[in-house]
Amino acid sequence: MGLDRRGFMKTLGVAGTTLALGKTAFAAGKGKESIEFYGILYDSTRCVGCQTCENSCAEKHGLPAPTEVPEAGVIRKTDESRRTVVNLFKTTKGEVYVKNQCMHCNEPACAAACLTQAMYKTKEGPVIWRGNKCMGCRYCMVSCPFDVPKFEFHSANPKITKCDMCYDRILEGKKPACAENCPAEAITFGTRRELIQEARKRIAAQPDVYSDLIYGEREAGGTGEVYVAQVPPVELGFKTNLQNESYPALSKGFLYAVPSVFVLLPVLLLGIHETTKTNKNHQNEGDENE
């Protein structure tokens, strides 16, 4: 999965995408050039539930085309054979469609959980899965607050499957398949910063149409997929109890304590061992006296 950085930069230049210079809050790593994370803005007010995104996703990833249609009261979930689903919700403002897929968190729990870096936050933003590294422990599934990674339980050579934001297409300078093909322009691809601005603009322009919350702006430390809709997220099946701090931060304290324990505890143990040696001698003498 080696990434040809130079080639990538060229493509970006051709595509005319803005390259952010210097370090931004969302910059991925300490590479020579920093680029902003890409993301997707999904607008429920525009979505008509045609499932073109589902079909183009299935086609792109060689998965079976969807057979069910979105239905109010039925929650379809992503699984091994579908990486994105559109659900229909009856809300206070009528029927609203919502597309679900991987949220591509800024600081993904799955990638922090992965002990082989198989689950990996690319510097372009998509969180991808790399089969040559994965050992199938499923800790990513345990950790993901959105329950996104799925596992092929019925395969002898199982894969972890989830949306990868069409990472290969992004490297070629193209949009993800769903964003490319959405006829209603409900799915917008761009840098996360632009998308948040766009979302704010839409809300500000039509405050009576939109609910004023951008889901994904802060949830779980911010996600690459951000949502605007007519109604608050709670009516659309979103998890609303998530913390705004990133999930990897939860185990940071423990991990930071490890080096200190590793250095200090052996010294302490050795010290106790040395100072209690006399105990042993006393006891041995006692034994002999018996």
């Binding site: 002990l115 994965c134 050992m135 199938g136 199982p158």
Partner: peptide, 28 residues
Amino acid sequence: LLLDLGRPWNVINPIIGNSFGTSSVLFL
């Protein structure tokens, strides 16, 4: 654990490989 690993042939990755997931508690 090996029985529970979906892809046990990769179990050596975090031990020898170039794939140290040092941010993972499971790695530790």
